[in-house]
């Protein structure tokens, strides 16, 4: 177990270094390099030269990478000249709000997807199973922003039940002042994962249904409900922990689009505005932080899974 944790940690560290290398490469792919990124398209040659000398961008590439890592380790993610703020302070206000959105969406897709997948496994190849499958497929094929638009059309424009705009506010607390406004963004983002979770749960439960312990449990005369909830559910639900880690990049991608649709004031909206304004330091800073966060997320998921499920082989 300890060897597994150490190996997994080293692997995650290598991937984190890889993420910083990818972003470092992107910074240097910019015509004009990091100076152009910070100073904008209208910077003069002299300004670019001065910036490069001041920040060490005239040194050898490995030295520059070392400086880049050094700055990252000190929490210096760059400076957004468009917002006139450090990237770190922008992230401090926006990232927690995205975490709330993503967390709620994961919770909802699990609460709906897991029981539905279980139901499908128990009633497999019957009408209900096919109906849920068709729904999951439709959810997968639908662009998430379009799903959001349809929900706005139905619940905000048509029925006047829910607001079409996400709750506005600078702090995380402000997000919760109007819980009704959270419903549509969270539901739309949950649709991204719902299909994944229900499909996974279905196949996982089907694999467990043919195991010996299931037959034993039934042979003992335990009621069907108890067999399903005490034996089938715990055994087939644990692998979903790793799926949560694996789907993080996809869900964070979805968060960008959905924050744009509902004007949700989080990291995604910040990043989108940065892209429209070509605010490169902000984009690079967010990318590094989010990249590292997904690595840490899947690392935690794997370790948690290994801790919970003794059947995991540590190889």
């Amino acid at each position: 177990m300890l060897a597994y944790i150490v190996r997994r940690l080293i692997q995650a560290l290598i991937v984190v270094i890889g993420v910083t290398l990818v972003v470092f490469l992107l910074i240097h792919l910019l015509p004009g390099g990091p100076a152009r990124a910070a100073l904008g398209a209208r910077a003069t040659k002299a300004e670019i030269h001065n910036f490069n000398v001041a920040n060490g961008y005239n040194r050898a590439i490995p030295v520059q990478y070392g400086l880049y890592i050094w700055r990252l380790l000190h929490g210096n993610l760059g400076y957004s000249y468009k917002y006139n703020q450090t990237v770190l302070s922008l992230l401090e206000t926006n990232l927690p709000k995205t975490a709330v959105l993503v967390g709620l969406a994961y919770a909802l897709s699990l609460v709906v997807g897991v029981p539905l997948g279980l139901y499908q496994a128990v009633r497999r190849n019957k009408f209900g199973d096919h109906a849920v499958t068709a729904f999951a497929f439709a959810g997968y094929a639908m662009p998430n922003f379009w799903a959001g638009m349809l929900l706005i059309l139905a619940f905000a424009v048509g029925l006047h039940l829910l607001p079409a705009e996400a709750p506005q506010g600078a702090t995380v607390g402000a997000i919760f002042t109007d819980p009704r406004a959270l419903v549509l963004p969270v539901v739309t983002l949950a649709l991204v994962n719902f299909a994944q979770f229900s499909r996974f749960m279905r196949s996982s439960a089907i694999e467990n249904l043919v195991q010996d312990y299931m037959r034993t449990a039934r042979a003992k005369g335990i009621s069907t409900g108890r067999v399903i909830f005490r034996h089938l559910l715990p055994n087939s639900v644990t692998p979903i922990i790793t799926l949560i880690g694996l789907t993080l990049p996809i869900v964070l991608s979805g968060a960008i689009v959905i924050e744009a649709v509902f004007n949700y004031p989080g990291m995604g909206l910040l990043f989108w505005n940065a892209a429209l304004k070509q605010d490169y330091p902000l984009m690079m800073g967010v990318t590094v932080v989010v990249g590292v966060a997904t690595v840490v997320g899947s690392l935690l998921a794997d370790l948690l899974y290994a801790a919970i499920d003794p059947r995991v082989r540590y190889d």
Binding site: V22, F271, W272, Q278, M283, V290
Partner: peptide, 22 residues
């Protein structure tokens, strides 16, 4: 494979938006 993991860790839309602006 670690190179694949590294690119995979960055949400695809983030990476795409970055490249499209460059």
């Amino acid at each position: 494979m670690r190179i694949v993991d590294s690119i995979y860790a960055i949400p695809p839309l983030l990476l795409m938006l970055l490249m499209v602006t460059i």
